[in-house]
Amino acid sequence: MQLTKVMKAGVIALVLSQLAACSSLGVKPWQRDTLAKEEMALNSAPLDNRLDDHIYFSKEGSSGGRSFAGGGCGCN
């Protein structure tokens, strides 16, 4: 069971690393107009994410993913 999951993760990581190496992906520096916008930042609403992570950390059995999973509060 565990091994299958690790293998699955490995396959996905491999596919994505191949994707990353593909030279047709990406933009030239002068094509970053949209990407440079605040709305396109991966963490465009850091406080919302932080508050959400805290709530879900204390109410559900999972945490992390976007950022670290561990510690920080008792949260009962």
């Binding site: 990406g26 670290f68 561990g70």
Partner: peptide
Amino acid sequence: KDTLDVLLGLTQVINRDWLMQFNYSFSLA
């Protein structure tokens, strides 16, 4: 309780309008 977190991230610009991130994280408590 001691917690160790490791996070491996890959961010890729796909095109002018598409940005992608892929993370694998490991947490040992």
